[in-house]
Write a protein that binds this DNA or RNA. Structure first.
Lengths: 124, 124
DNA sequence: ATAATTAGTTTACACTTGTAACTCATTTTT
DNA sequence: AAAAATGAGTTACAAGTGTAAACTAATTAT
C-alpha cells in the first residue's frame, strides 16, 4: 500500500469527518463518529495513525492538549481516483456503461436523469 | 463473508470470464485470464474454490475430463449490488451526487452526458 | 498396465484490515 | 505534589485476501 489515495473503508470514515468538519482533534473525531456508530477511541487512533503513515493526514501540535489532524488530500481529489478505479474495475472505464446500467436497473429513471442534465445545462 | 455478492477483486476477474465466455472449464478460464495477465493455475483453482464455497459459482461434471464451472448470479445482479454499495460508501447513496461529481471532475462532459440521455430517449 | 498429466481438494503463508489493548509521557484534578 | 485522566505511539490478533505449493484421485499417453 503506502499510497495516500489507497484508503480503506474504516479509514474513509475518518477522512470524511476531516473533510466535513475540518481539522480536528482525536476527541472531536471520536465524538463525530459516535453520532453514527460507536467506535473505540483506540480504534480511531490506529486508523489515524495509519492515515498519517500513508500521508493522507498530517498531525500538528495544537497548543497543549493534543494534536490537530488534517487531511492532505481533498475529498474531490479522492473521489476522482475512487471513481476511476470503480469504473475501471466494473465498466471497462466507461461512464457510459455505468449510466446505461443505472437506467437499466432502475437506480435512476430516464426522467430523473434528464432532469439532472437540464439542471446542469441551466446552471453554468 | 459467505455472501455470494461479496466478491473480491481477484475473484471478480474469474466471474467476468464466466459471464463473458459462459460456462467454462478450469483450463479455459486460465487460458482466458492469460490473455490479460498471467496467473498461476493453482491460484485460479483456489479462487474458483472460494467462489464455489460462497455459492457464486457451481461446478458440474463434464463427461470425463473435468468440471464445468458456472456463475450462479448474473453480471447485472452483481453490478446492481456493487453500484449500490459504491454509491452508499461515497455519495450517501445519491446517483445525483455521483453524476455531479463526474461532470465537475471532467470524467464526462455535459455534452457527452446530454448525448447519452438523448440516446436513451430515442431508444425505447 | 504403467507412467505422466491433469484436475479437484487441502494446506500454507505473508500482507491487509478491523478492532482494540498496552505503555509511557503529559495534562488535569484533588 | 500525588493521583487520575488523557493522548500519542506501539503492539496484538483474528479474519480476509492474494498467491501458490502439496497431496490425491482420475484421465491420457506410451
Amino acid at each position: 500500500m503506502q499510497n495516500k489515495y489507497d484508503i480503506t473503508d474504516s479509514e474513509l470514515e475518518i477522512m470524511q469527518v476531516l473533510w466535513n468538519c475540518g481539522n480536528s482533534t482525536l476527541t472531536e473525531i471520536v465524538a463525530e463518529l459516535d453520532k453514527t456508530k460507536k467506535r473505540n477511541k483506540n480504534t480511531v487512533k490506529t486508523l489515524l495513525y495509519r492515515l498519517v503513515d500513508k500521508e493522507a493526514v498530517i498531525s500538528s501540535k495544537n497548543g497543549g492538549q493534543g494534536f490537530l489532524y488534517s487531511a492532505t488530500i481533498t475529498e474531490k481529489e479522492y473521489l476522482k481516483t475512487a471513481n476511476k478505479s470503480f469504473l475501471k474495475k466494473l465498466y471497462e472505464g466507461s461512464v457510459q456503461k455505468l449510466l446505461l446500467n443505472f437506467v437499466e436497473d432502475k437506480t435512476i429513471s430516464k426522467e430523473e436523469l434528464k432532469k439532472l442534465v437540464d439542471m446542469l445545462e441551466s446552471e453554468e
